[in-house]
Amino acid sequence: MASVPLQVIALPAALELIGRLRARHGPLLFHQSGGCCDGSSPMCYAQDEFIVGDRDVQLGEIGGAPFYISAPQFEYWKHTQLIIDVVEGRGGMFSLENGEGVRFLVRSRLFEDDEVEALRAAGRFGD
């Protein structure tokens, strides 16, 4: 059986931006809620400015910041590894990268069958 894969990772550009934002705002967290508009992008907040919901799932950490996803989005995306990247553009209205000229972006890849089994065995698959 494969080792338990990370459910969320960040590419170097995202890690660099997280570091800059942390230096400016202190401890951070990410939330992926789904939906339209700003909700479809990963949102970055100061940890003391966002209340995590009772049903939100912590996928892991990126750059030392916990990364949460809403329960309905987790059910939809649990077969994928979320890969957080940065691209040029405008960040979400309430996300801390707004005004930086870049925004966080979710890319993804499907887990292999053995990775899904490893996630299930570790209790990280939601069934």
Rank of each mutant, 00 (worst) to 15 (best):
D48R: 13
L29D: 01
R55A: 11
A23N: 10
D85Q: 04
V87I: 10
S40W: 06
E88G: 15
P42V: 09
Q32V: 08
Q81W: 01
S41F: 15
G35C: 04
K78D: 01
F50W: 07
Q81P: 00
Q47W: 03
A23C: 06
D48T: 14
G92Q: 01
R90T: 15
G26E: 02
S70C: 00
V57L: 04
I69T: 14
H31Q: 07
L28S: 06
E61D: 11
S41V: 12
I84Q: 07
F50P: 05
L29P: 02
P27H: 11
H31E: 14
H25Q: 05
R22E: 00
T80G: 06
D54L: 10
A71G: 04
G101S: 03
R55F: 12
N98C: 15
L59E: 04
G26W: 02
E100W: 11
D85K: 05
I69A: 02
L28K: 01
E49R: 15
Q73W: 02
R90S: 11
R24F: 06
L59F: 12
L59I: 01
S33P: 13
R55S: 09
D38R: 12
E88M: 04
G63P: 04
S95I: 12
V52F: 03
I62R: 03
P27N: 11
G64Y: 03
F74V: 12
K78L: 07
G60R: 02
Q81N: 06
S41R: 12
V52D: 03
D56K: 05
E100P: 00
G26Q: 02
F67V: 07
Q73T: 13
R22I: 04
L28H: 00
T80D: 04
H79F: 14
G64P: 05
A23H: 10
I84D: 15
D85F: 01
V102N: 01
L29N: 08
F50S: 09
A23V: 11
G26L: 05
L29I: 00
Q81I: 06
D48P: 03
I83V: 15
P66E: 03
A71V: 07
P42M: 07
G53Y: 02
